[in-house]
């Protein structure tokens, strides 16, 4: 067995064992896996494709609303639920809860993916700063829009269905969500790990390095850009759906379309770990989460100062992130070597 397989198995074992090893930190580590998903999927655009987006948070909020709306709407009248704080009047049976959750999560992935395809078709023709600003506007608009829709509670927000009372305590609830988050993180990681080995990955990198050249070589870049955004939106949407259930309460600007928190975090995490690498966003998300929780716990009140300082330090001293810094330092470990041994069929230089 090689080193890589051992590493993967060790991480897998750690992930599975967390609820038993650190029962007090289950929720924190669930959120960490969500952050890894956000960071990995942001990197599809920001790192691999070179399109800095501030709009991925849009799919997070969308997934959150859609998941809960489906969970509630297929069993009870949604409008009454949101108007009355419906969890008091309508109670999901365990079967209803899990059925609803399953259906909700599926749509929380599919609908944002469709939205990404449609919006992407419209705006992925923009490049560079124009794309970034456009996505930023869309994300803010999405929050404002959601805050205007009565059906989902408008500015007051809505509650997601509470865990059914008659099947175990809150411990079981957090274990359940922990493992769903873990599975989502693993699926996202494995999917992207595979996708980056296919034509998709190479074309994304080609677009990042020189989009005009890619087009001149006959590549339909739009198709790949949209596919990339659809993939991101799918996983981010599911992450949003899960997050809504874990928090239990959806507020349009603070939790769902949370551009100031998660929307910024996903960018910082990917840059901290190393844009455009597979492991960079994972390492970045974990490091960031530990840093963030440390500050939130011990230096409450200064946490945003610390966060700002972290961003400045990363941008000035590690613009390529942890992985990028390692690659600069040890290029040969990353396969960048001059091959002294010549090919036998070397064509004579005349």
């Amino acid at each position: 067995m090689n080193q890589k397989a051992i590493l993967y198995l060790a991480l897998l074992a750690f992930g599975i064992a967390v609820p038993f090893m650190f029962p007090a930190y289950k929720l924190q580590i669930s959120i960490m896996w969500i952050l890894v998903v956000l960071s990995l999927t942001w990197d599809v655009q920001g790192g691999q494709m070179g399109y800095n987006t501030f709009g991925n948070i849009m799919f997070f909020g969308l997934g959150m609303y859609i998941c809960s709306s489906f969970q509630i709407g297929i069993f009870f009248p949604l409008a009454e639920w949101t108007a009355s704080g419906g969890e008091k009047t309508f109670i999901h049976t365990p079967t209803q809860f899990f059925q609803g959750f399953f259906i909700g999560i599926i749509f929380a992935g599919i609908i944002p993916a469709l939205v990404a395809a449609i919006i992407g078709y419209g705006i992925l023709g923009l490049r560079g700063h124009y794309f970034a600003i456009c996505t930023l506007g869309l994300a803010i608009a999405a929050g404002e829009l959601a805050g205007g829709i009565e059906l989902v509670g408008a500015g007051q927000g809505m509650t997601s269905p509470p865990w059914p009372k008659n099947i175990g305590d809150t411990e079981l609830r957090s274990e359940f969500f922990y493992y769903i988050c873990f599975v989502l993180m693993i699926s996202t990681f494995l999917f992207l790990r595979w996708a980056y080995t296919t034509r998709f990955g190479l074309v994304l990198n080609a677009i990042r390095d020189n989009e005009d050249k890619a087009e001149a070589m006959g590549i339909n870049t739009m198709r790949y850009k949209i596919s990339g955004w659809v993939v991101s939106a799918f996983f981010v949407g599911i992450a949003g759906g899960l997050m809504g259930n874990m928090i239990g309460y959806i507020e349009p600007v603070e939790t769902a379309f949370a551009g100031r928190t998660f929307g910024v975090f996903m960018v910082v995490m990917a840059i901290l770990g190393g844009k455009g690498t597979l492991w960079g966003p994972v390492i970045g998300a974990i490091a960031f989460h530990i840093f963030k929780e440390g500050f939130w716990t011990f230096f409450l009140g200064w946490q945003y100062v610390a966060l700002g300082a972290l961003i400045v330090i990363v941008v000035i001293f590690f613009p390529e992130g942890i992985m990028g810094w390692l690659r600069e330092k040890y290029p040969d470990r990353f396969g960048e070597v001059i091959d002294e041994e010549d090919r036998k069929a070397q064509v004579e230089l005349k």
Partner: peptide, 29 residues
């Protein structure tokens, strides 16, 4: 115009004409 952050082999691999080129070949090996 080359793809600066990719190595030469990858620059070459992405330049080849794919055997199929449609929506379903986006994730082709």
């Amino acid at each position: 115009r080359i793809y600066g952050k990719l190595n030469c082999i990858d620059n070459m691999r992405i330049s080849a004409k794919p055997s199929r080129d449609n929506l379903f070949s986006v994730f082709s090996a």
